[in-house]
């Protein structure tokens, strides 16, 4: 894959141009863009951001237009394992790799990011948005208008947030970022290795990545969630295509945890019922989240015969 970072003619939008080669796949869109003008553009971070964004589509060769340093090329190759990816344009001469001081929480609009924002000290919260037409950057918040999300696989919390990580790496120097906090509660078996490789890759460009919620129990997580009303507002702001936050599994997971911690059995059952309905209607739940709606905490699929508002399938 040949990749390049360019500014569009308005000089306001950063575009990642890419050209698939013989073994590469073609993404759903032929360009990736951010409504954000990059000021500082470090060569190595650019190459790393391209690799992370286009991770599902690269096979065979990665050729960033500005190349990369020798100390980044090895973790870049390792990042794609077990794919054998050649990295082209490797420069032997030493070069500066910037470093920052600030911590950013990368948000994906989930109850997990709501908990992360409550649980961990941070300087900045960053999220991508496909439905806003302009980027909003403030001292504490950055909402980045972008189509990067279209380049993600949806199977797993880490896969889904890779485009946001790629964006954060691109403007890490401009924003003085040193540490990225991911709102990940669990990883799929495939993602466990990927996370380790990602950590090595980001470390090579002076960026630490952490997933402090990883493995945290739901009870502990509940401590950091806002009240249901506060959470509804949080979710409404981040899911602008939804009229009701009640249509999100995130809302009912938070409700369920809140009811459980308060010993409200009826409330817990109701939340579990609504979660089951949403899951049967195609909403994706992780293994542990599915465990929340099993009567015995197992991870079996629930019965299709749901309550009355449950859609039925007939043929």
């Amino acid at each position: 894959m040949q990749t390049e970072t360019v500014l569009n003619p308005t000089e306001r939008v950063t575009i990642i141009k890419f050209t698939p080669e013989q073994y590469d796949a073609f993404p759903l869109s032929s360009t990736a863009w951010l409504d954000w003008r990059l000021i500082e553009r470090n060569r190595d971070r650019e190459a790393v951001a391209h690799a992370i964004l286009l991770f599902p589509f690269i096979s065979g060769r990665l050729s960033p237009s500005r190349g990369c340093g020798i100390d980044v090329s090895q973790p870049l190759r390792g990042f794609f394992s077990p794919r054998h990816v050649l990295v082209e344009g490797v420069e032997m001469a030493p070069a500066r790799i910037p470093s920052g001081t600030r911590t950013a929480i990368l948000c994906d609009g989930s109850y997990r990011s709501a908990a992360a924002l409550g649980a961990f000290e941070h300087d900045l919260a960053i999220r991508l948005s496909e439905s806003t037409y302009t980027t909003s950057i403030g001292p504490r918040n950055a909402i980045v208008s972008s189509n990067f999300g279209l380049f993600a696989r949806r199977d797993g919390q880490l896969n889904a947030i890779l485009p946001t990580i790629a964006a954060a790496v691109l403007f890490a120097e401009d924003l003085g970022l040193a540490r990225l906090v991911l709102p990940i509660l669990e990883l799929t078996a495939v993602e466990i290795d990927l996370f380790a490789r990602l950590t090595m890759l980001l470390a090579a460009v002076n960026i630490a990545v952490e997933a402090p919620l990883l493995g945290v129990g739901f009870e502990a997580l509940q401590e950091f969630l806002a009240s249901p009303i506060g959470l509804a507002t949080f979710l409404s702001e981040r899911h602008q295509d939804r009229m009701h936050p009640e249509d999100l599994t995130d809302f009912w997971i938070a409700k369920l945890l809140s009811a459980r911690s308060g010993g409200e059995i009826a409330g817990e059952k109701e939340a579990a019922r609504r979660l089951r309905e949403l899951h049967e209607a195609g909403a994706v739940l992780s293994d542990r989240e599915r465990g929340l709606i099993m009567p015995d905490g197992s991870e079996q699929e629930p019965s299709i015969d749901g309550p009355t508002s449950q859609p039925k399938t007939v043929s």
Partner: peptide, 14 residues
Amino acid sequence: RARRSGAILNWIGD
């Protein structure tokens, strides 16, 4: 065609 549809071609190195 698989590549154009979003699938990579991977030559296994094991």
